[in-house]
Simulated assay, not measured.
Amino acid sequence: MNWSFLILILAATFGGGLIPMTVKRLHPNLPIYLLAFTGAFLFGITIMHLLPEVYHELGHTAGVYILLGFFLQVFLQQLSHGMEHGHTHLPPADGHHHHISITPLLAGLSIHAFMEGIPLGLNFGDRSALPSLAFGVAAHKVPEALTLMTVMMHAHQPKARLWRILGLFSLVTPLAAVLAGQLGHYSETVTASLVYLTALVIGAFVHISTTIFYESGTRHHELSKRKILAFAAGIVLAFLTLIFE
């Protein structure tokens, strides 16, 4: 277990959540371009590093678990309302109080965050897979935590509770990675299961990243030049992770 990767993910999550809490006037397009960049980066890493790994280990069976993971994420976003790919669904600023049910939002996003940490405990045959995955997850955590805390602030959560939510959420993915790594170290059954769980997570990554491509845009979800540049930068960075080989 490389603890520096876990610290990076924790810091990225906490830092992303701090943005809406400390910046009074956040540019409305910043989350859009940030999501486009990190979504493309995560998609590239999934295709170039994770998919070959699970197909090498599981053969054609990998496709079944990837498909299950895709639809598992469809279910989870019914709870989180798509916060994983930047949806906030904030109430209109019309001066009326609107209730936001935060329990299912936190449950759905926390389950997703826990899933993200599981592959970090896998012993990859490809040496470049683990550092690439760690950077991809860390990058995705920034807009994910930003969106979460934006919603929590609009739900009028007390300041102290906002800090608790951010702190606990920042720990979820590193905790999942530690549990997967440590349990896998002591149990051959867990070790064998991790590759299947990783295939499920790949399905979730594919769902999230492709949804970002098609939905996380400006009005009418058009592909602006800046959004295309953000996509391109993410893909280029994903290619650069091949230097870890």
Rank of each mutant, 00 (worst) to 15 (best):
H156K: 14
G125D: 15
L197T: 00
F135Y: 15
S193L: 15
G82C: 03
P158C: 05
A176N: 01
P92N: 14
H97K: 12
H99T: 12
M149W: 02
L168C: 10
Y196H: 15
P143H: 03
L122M: 06
L171R: 08
L166G: 04
Q157K: 11
A160N: 14
F124W: 14
L130T: 04
H154D: 13
L166Q: 04
L171V: 14
M83E: 07
L120D: 02
I100M: 08
P91Y: 02
K141H: 15
L105Y: 06
V172P: 05
V142M: 13
G108N: 02
L90D: 01
M149P: 04
S187C: 11
M115D: 08
A155F: 07
H207S: 14
G167P: 08
I165P: 05
L179V: 13
S170W: 03
A93R: 15
F205Y: 11
T88M: 14
T88N: 10
T103V: 15
F205E: 12
H185C: 07
V178K: 15
G95C: 03
P91L: 00
M115R: 10
M115P: 09
L90C: 09
H99R: 15
L146W: 11
A138M: 04
I165V: 08
L106K: 07
V190D: 08
T189D: 09
G125Y: 03
M152W: 04
G95I: 04
M115G: 13
L90Y: 03
P104W: 03
S101F: 11
K159P: 09
H97D: 12
T103S: 12
H96A: 12
L146R: 08
V195N: 04
T191V: 03
P104Y: 03
L146P: 06
L130H: 10
G86F: 05
G117W: 01
R164T: 11
I111C: 00
A145K: 05
G136E: 10
A139R: 04
H112C: 00
A199T: 00
V178I: 11
H85L: 11
A93G: 13
T147Y: 00
L105N: 06
M115N: 15
K141Y: 08
Y196D: 09
E84Y: 03
L162M: 08
T189K: 12
